[in-house]
């Protein structure tokens, strides 16, 4: 709340002669729907209807030129049992998620801990570390990355000083995906900012009493910071998995899925099926499989969270 508003609040208060709130809980039916109308229209037009339509299309063959033809479970059985590219792209995407999400969580947590102190220049550090996340999604950074990790790029030049012979990082199928993971990890800024906000909410007296009890830094980290931060960690984990699964721009611009399909991400596969081959039905089936996978992973995350996420309100200390 800004100071101006608090001041207003004070001056208004004496005029409020214990005015009771209206008892009727639906007093603004018309106005309420009028205000949310833009979102509601958008929801029906751009979300709900497309979902229904996509589900229908996933059982059809449709190339935009003729009407959709019903093929039953044809697309699904083709994808699941015959399509090699489906397995490849799923494998690539899983590998990407498994490496990039933990790396990102680890880096952002470490840096957030270092930033969570009242030290000088905190704004500078925070901005510097956030900066790559600001520009990272752009095609410009994909261009930069492609140049830096080229066989004759500057990364290999630096490695040359240490007598390490570099490869063409993005043209070698063994290293291409790793290079994209690195690009993704470089953008840990927004994850870090969320961790930082979480760290600031941990009551300092917990640390103080632990220190009095003789707990060292490491123990305080594992027994206070991690449990108290676990809901935020969970939030970042769920969003990280969902986001990484849909990774598109860098795979499209930097490597275009290659070499030898080593960076052929699922989102790219889907894009090519839909908008290069115009197999709209097939692409819709791919989208539904993606939805099921993401939903399953999110559900697993939620189930697992019981064992490691600590919520203060349930069984934690009373405030």
């Amino acid at each position: 709340m800004n100071p101006q508003a608090s001041a207003q609040r004070g001056s208004f208060r004496h005029r409020l002669v214990r005015k009771k709130r209206m008892a009727n809980s639906n007093e603004h039916n018309a106005a309420g729907y009028l205000f949310i109308a833009p979102w509601l229209i958008g929801f029906f037009l751009l979300t709900l209807w497309p979902i229904v339509r996509s589900f229908y299309l996933s059982f059809t063959e449709y190339s935009l030129l003729e009407d959709p033809t019903w093929v039953g479970l044809g697309n699904y059985s083709e994808i699941l049992f015959k399509d090699e590219l489906f397995r490849t792209s799923l494998g690539v995407t899983f590998t990407f998620v498994v490496f990039s999400v933990p790396v990102k969580l680890f880096c952002s947590l470490m840096v957030a801990m270092a930033l969570n102190k009242s030290i000088r220049g905190i704004n500078f550090y925070r901005t510097a570390i956030y900066f790559p996340s600001l520009i990272g999604g752009s095609i410009a950074v994909s261009v930069l990355w492609r140049n830096m990790f080229d066989l004759n790029g500057y990364i290999n030049h630096v490695l040359g000083w240490f007598h390490i012979k570099g490869v063409g990082w993005l043209t070698n199928p063994d290293t291409s995906l790793g290079t994209l993971v690195l690009l993704n990890a470089w953008q840990f800024g927004s994850t870090m900012v969320i961790f930082l906000a979480g760290l600031k909410q941990i009551p300092q007296d917990l640390y103080e009493s632990a220190a009095v009890d003789g707990a060292g830094k490491v123990r305080r980290f594992f027994n206070i910071t991690l449990p108290m931060l676990s809901p935020v960690m969970f939030f970042n984990l769920v969003l990280g998995v969902i986001g990484s699964f849909q990774m598109f721009t860098s795979a499209f611009v930097i490597t275009n899925g290659g070499p030898v399909n080593s960076t052929y991400m699922y989102a790219l596969f889907l894009f090519e099926k839909a908008f290069k081959n115009y197999q709209m039905g097939y692409a819709s089936a791919l989208a539904w499989i993606l939805l099921v996978i993401i939903a399953a992973l999110t559900a697993i995350n939620f189930l697992m969270s019981k064992y490691w996420v600590f919520y203060e309100s349930e069984g934690g200390r009373a405030k």
């Binding site: 497309p50 969902i242 819709s284 993606l290």
Partner: peptide, 10 residues
């Protein structure tokens, strides 16, 4: 939470 890929084709 909905992946954009589901709605993009329709």
């Amino acid at each position: 939470m909905l992946p954009g890929q589901v709605t993009i084709v329709p």
